[in-house]
């Protein structure tokens, strides 16, 4: 099997107890920052709405009771809002869910309450210096799996929950089906398949440019190389028996 860590890729291969290998796609800092910003806006909204409600309710409850409730809400939104959502069924805060992320264990399993507490309480350090999230960002960039310090301590990853559908444009249909001249490794076969799947998205020049890298395999450059690679992909994927 290929070693996924050796490559520069956000795909994380995990073997389950069922003996199958799943691929988790690790989320990078930019998307996570977006999710955080959305969560921040949601919490800000809650504070404003409950603040207004409590200022009216304060007339009945007493001003100090309303102030106290506001402090409690502040406490829960600050420390417990992400914990409760991430330990919950969906494993994501509303912000993460809206951008399609989820917090999981390295095995892909949902995280526990304890892990949610650790990763979110340590946010305090990740957010430093001065809530710029500098430490968290450096940690994300320095680790293979984009983990901030809280993720490292809790042993959690942030992954794409549902992969966005890749746009697929029909590639030019292969004219023929050609058997590859040498036996290919699994990775090479996968690369050929992906080349064929994505070829429709690229311009002719881009296709040639990429295909030229495999000129040794196709034995041709330029357009001829592209059509030869496509023919091999076709043979590998569909016409193997013939």
């Amino acid at each position: 099997m290929e070693s996924p860590l050796a490559k520069l890729d956000t795909l994380q291969a995990v073997e389950l107890a069922e003996g199958v290998e799943i691929r988790l796609r690790i989320a990078g800092p930019v998307l996570r920052a977006n999710a955080y910003a959305i969560d921040l806006l949601i919490r800000l909204g809650i504070v404003i709405v409950t603040g207004i409600c409590l200022s009216f309710a304060g007339l009945a409850l007493g001003e100090r009771v309303a102030d106290g409730l506001m402090l409690l809400i502040w406490f829960f939104l600050g420390w417990w809002y992400p914990v409760l959502f991430e330990a919950g069924k969906r494993g994501a805060t509303p912000g993460k869910r809206s951008v399609g992320l989820r917090v999981v264990q390295p095995s892909g399993a949902p995280i526990t309450l304890g892990q949610a507490i650790i990763r979110n309480f340590l946010r305090f350090i990740d957010g430093m210096p001065a809530i710029t999230y500098g430490f968290g960002l450096v940690s994300c960039l320095a680790t293979k799996r984009f983990q901030r310090l809280g993720d490292l301590a809790a042993g959690t990853l942030v992954v794409y929950d549902r992969l966005p559908q890749e746009p697929s444009v029909a590639a030019p249909p292969p004219m023929s089906s050609v058997r590859p001249p040498v036996a290919l490794t699994a990775d090479e076969v996968r690369s050929l398949g992906m080349f064929r799947d994505r070829a429709g998205l690229w311009s002719e020049a881009r296709r040639c440019e990429i295909a030229d890298h495999a000129a040794v395999l196709s034995g041709a450059r330029g357009k001829a190389g592209v059509s030869r690679l496509m023919a091999m992909a076709h043979w590998l994927q569909e016409k193997r028996d013939s």
């Binding site: 100090r64 009771v65 106290g68 409730l69 402090l71 406490f75």
Partner: peptide
């Protein structure tokens, strides 16, 4: 009225 409760909430937020 309510200042005991408010201080309780303050201590929760601050001390915890």
């Amino acid at each position: 009225y309510g200042s005991n409760f408010m201080m309780f909430c303050f201590y929760i937020n601050n001390n915890v």
